[in-house]
Design a protein around this nucleic acid. Structure first.
Lengths: 250, 250
DNA sequence: CCTTGCATACTTGTATGGAAGTATGCAAGG
DNA sequence: CCTTGCATACTTCCATACAAGTATGCAAGG
């Protein structure tokens, strides 16, 4: 199995240091070291900088992030709960592979909750979709200048805003927890500009459905939108076979 | 603020030991100490043996559970993520109070996902509701002999089984995470036998709706069922005012 | 050549000691 | 009597040392 140090050695030609893979966030704010590590490592996993199946080591990671093993372990515990890491006692800690059954569950949760939120967002007589239009514009501009990260942020913000309009901003948290698995699959298939345009198109139709309170149309659009990650899944499984888990959860 | 030791002193007349509040789970299986503590403390909180607002202490808890502070802290981190604990740095760790906004969010997530699962469970032509009927019988018998714990288990199992029938057993996990807040509110209002009978009645109607695939009827019943916890909420807020949070999340 | 057993170097899990920060009570001064 | 400042006793947070278990490579024996 490929180790963390090996991977870094390949990419940066430095045997021990791993600068670049995980940005070393320094002690800003009053944030706990545990939180910084959770954010840093969690983002690195979701952005596939730490590829699925990679074997990590607590002490190695701790050194590279300049924290001790205690706060690192607390971050690991949370990442295990989130389904992004898997700990094999006395063996190692590895980046969880993408399990299509988990992806499907996340898709169901997301689609179902977003449709529920959409219906509530359509209910108020005086609803204000100007924020949604702003976010659509942001996405368009970010796409035109090839800024994927900003597009991602605006994408997230759009979906979160719909939950806010529905009066359930907290439910978006529940969706995000499940979305972790979807994120990695999306990241695999999203360098394609055409796909981004499709997503923006989806967003426009969903926002339009809210503006005009067309329930049936909106439900359909959200369903289509939520299932897009699954479209490229079979191809991605062929292209990156060892990113995907074949066996049931250990 | 009432401390953990004080509470125990009141109930058991022992100043330091806290036997009874949290069962000391001994090192069975190959389970990690961290996992045992998470289960033990989490259950104690959900069953209100550790009342909302209670101020805890890492070292105190560690002594009483016969583990060191490290695995205890890892359990605390998970319980914070679950929304059952709240850590105030350099001050203390306290049992999170019940916030009605969280309850409402959990209700929305649960109701929406259960309706979604219900619709899928109705779809297959050859669906087998015998397991559901067994669980209904278990609930009836448990209620007749006043066995609340068994009723709770069968209740959970029934809802989980519906998600299984829908082909999304994993989505039940997402519901359970949100349900933690609902559990405590239910626990407050459930010593009432009449309420238990109402719940069993709800369950029967929901199972019937699945058996006959009456979509509209089932959706309505699940919605009514999911909102029952809210019925007694105002009364409970009057009866146990310091169990509930008034301010927004810190 | 192949198999088996063991020494060794890892891994995660747990315990403990110290550092930094906060609430509290008490004493001194107005 | 009321307010202010400080000493003290907590708290969580972090670093480190040790314990227990697993994989690996090498050597010895069949």
């Amino acid at each position: 199995m490929q180790s963390f140090a090996d991977l870094n050695a390949e990419q940066f030609n430095v045997p021990t240091a791993a600068r670049g893979l995980i940005p070393v966030v320094r002690a800003r704010d009053g944030l706990r070291a545990s939180d910084r590590v959770f954010e840093s490592v969690g983002t690195a996993i979701r952005e596939l900088r730490l590829p699925p199946g990679l074997l990590l080591s607590e002490s190695e990671l701790a050194q590279q992030l300049h924290v001790s093993r205690t706060p690192l372990r607390e971050a690991i515990v949370r990442l295990v709960d989130a389904g992004l890491l898997q700990v094999l006692p006395q063996v190692g800690t590895l980046v969880a592979k993408i399990r299509m059954s988990d992806v499907e569950e996340a898709r169901f949760v997301r689609e179902t909750l977003e449709i529920g939120a959409f219906e509530l967002a359509c209910a108020p007589a005086h609803r204000d979709v100007s924020v949604l239009h702003d976010l659509l514009d942001q996405q368009q501009r970010a796409h035109e200048r090839g800024d994927l990260e900003t597009f991602f942020s605006a994408d997230e913000a759009l979906h979160a805003e719909i939950f806010s309009m529905a009066g359930h901003p907290g439910a978006w948290m529940a969706v995000q927890r499940m979305k972790f698995q979807l994120d990695r699959l999306r990241r695999l298939s999203l360098p394609d500009p055409a796909t981004v345009e499709t997503l923006i198109h989806d967003h426009r139709r969903i926002v339009d459905a809210i503006a005009t309170a067309e329930l049936a149309q909106g439900r359909h659009q959200i369903s289509v939108h939520a299932r897009r990650v699954l479209e490229h899944a079979p191809l991605m499984q062929l292209k990156f076979p060892d990113y995907f888990a074949t066996e049931p959860r250990a």
